[in-house]
Design a protein around this nucleic acid. Sequence first.
DNA 1: GAACGAAATTTACGCAGGTAAAGAGTTAGC
DNA 2: GCTAACTCTTTACCTGCGTAAATTTCGTTC
Lengths: 353, 353
Amino acid sequence: MPKGSGAGGERPRLRTMEELSVAIGVSRPTLSRYFQDPDSVSRSSRERIARGLERVEYVPNFFATRMNRKSTGMIGVIIPYLNDLFFTKLQQSIEFAAMEAGFTVIVQCSHTTPEVEARAVETLISMNVDGAIVAPLGDNSDIAAMERLNRRLPFVLVDSRPGALSHVDYIGTEHSQSMGLMTEYLARVGDPPVFLAMPRVNFNALNHERAYLEKMEELGLEPQVVGTEEIEPGAHYEAHGELALGREFAEGRLTDRSIICVNDRVAIGALRAAARFGLDPGARRKGGLRIAGHDDYPLCPFLVPSLTTVGQDVDAIGQAAVARLMKKIRAENSLTDHAVTLFPGVLKLRESA
Amino acid sequence: MPKGSGAGGERPRLRTMEELSVAIGVSRPTLSRYFQDPDSVSRSSRERIARGLERVEYVPNFFATRMNRKSTGMIGVIIPYLNDLFFTKLQQSIEFAAMEAGFTVIVQCSHTTPEVEARAVETLISMNVDGAIVAPLGDNSDIAAMERLNRRLPFVLVDSRPGALSHVDYIGTEHSQSMGLMTEYLARVGDPPVFLAMPRVNFNALNHERAYLEKMEELGLEPQVVGTEEIEPGAHYEAHGELALGREFAEGRLTDRSIICVNDRVAIGALRAAARFGLDPGARRKGGLRIAGHDDYPLCPFLVPSLTTVGQDVDAIGQAAVARLMKKIRAENSLTDHAVTLFPGVLKLRESA
DNA sequence: GAACGAAATTTACGCAGGTAAAGAGTTAGC
DNA sequence: GCTAACTCTTTACCTGCGTAAATTTCGTTC
């Protein structure tokens, strides 16, 4: 028997609003209105209900309340995977923004597989969510499922946008700008940077690579890309970074170059590879090995050396996505403009480059 | 207009099973049975329905289907925060296990605040989930809410268990064993280890500290705990580790000791502090600074130096939690035994200690 | 004190489907 | 060829609550 749990612990449990109405002595519809907005009933009823609720244990049935209502007060979110602090941070800012707007968030994870993603879409549709925010699996996403989502309810893409969905609202980072920023910075201070890529499973990987190539051309420099081939199937991003760069180092290449990694997780692996070879990224700003990432993964400041990177404004993205979705929800279908909001990346200069 | 989305993109959309039944020419109840289990209708009906579904767009209403059914096929999960790969990994293994068992998972995050957690509990109850798995806020959790959950439906705690809920099923790591293991290892190879704690907001922090103290006493060694006071309000665990240990180093203390951190995130900060003071944890196994953590955070192998830690079997915990929950769900209330499953931690020896 | 309104409450029906019991169709046995 | 025994389908009612329309209540005014 736990102590201190006595207060109201054994109140009679009522299953339906009907039971509650006889217990309190107010009609069921009045209760219904009370639960939707306590101020919609008279003060006397309100107080009477409130007192009654203290004596019993009752919670309205979530499904029944949502059934016959125009709005379910829920928005759906789909993220591609869980083992990445970038997406969990995005999820968090979406949840806070939605909570503030009075919405319940239903999160589904597609676990990097299009089939699970498509199933998640069906689940959200069948739940009658008022709108959906999806961080897709890049070009791996089930485009037909996304199209269905887009036809059926307010829908916003975040983080990346498959080429086939260019007509859908999108909130994200201006990758060409952000990657260009880093490319330019590294080029300005040292040798032309080398791009450490990863197998094209990641959704913004190609965008980042493209942005790098463009900027290099603009600067009149010779681009160099390494690490595109898969080294170990199913390896974490970090492992890929370590293996790919380690392979270069092992053959004596790139040990004094500027490495611009496709993202921070790969960069973490790159730092590890450098350490394994006794290299100290960023020790010499000019002429020595430098390593930079992209995303501003929350751990970057704590790495050794701390990682120079480009920060994405995840909070802004999450808030803007929710704001846009709310606007679409309120506007029903009268909103015909097609919004793309891109936030610029900002350089986070730290020790590694 | 996107290309390649034509296949069935414009099929007539039916909102209700009633409409579908007239469109296909089968009675609604037959459809109902089909959607719950296609094998529960005759082969002819099954094929006829399947063919019909290809011609139209219809997805059953999630709420309506769950309303009048004994089981909703959903389990609820509550995790304390999102910005931690340990919990997301736990969530992932729970989701996979539940998916395999044919259940839909509803995840709610309590964002470290008891009020949000209590609200999440209400949401899960009102959704009639078949059971719930909760990683609580330690002793900060709303005990009354947890008690209510425990009375109303199959319920399993994971990761940590508030003292007041000792009568609830619990799946976790055997913290006294795992922390003892590390304490013993460090003590065996060098000076008596020092415990780097954190403000008591974290749920297993106290368990770990207690386990350390017990083991030290058992070994006949003098315990030493640092870092219990809050240095910077709201700081990340990593920041706390860096600040707390950095403060010691700045005054010339602990620079050649074995530091056992309350968890890996704090250890990451500790590694950073060491680097800032030009120290190289683990370089000398005997006599020099060593730093160890707890949890086997996914990034540990990639840190510089890689972090020696104690691994929790997160997958096993997630799977066991789901398995136990399934058993309770199937057993209704006939299950009276009270289960506690603890998985041992395993030493992960790496470079830092 | 009766009539009038505005506000609050109740009545009555609907939502989208689940499910037990009744009905229809099919096969097997004689 | 007919009935018994099943299987499958349909009928009919139910789930828990939202909500528009109808009714009641209560305070005000004349």
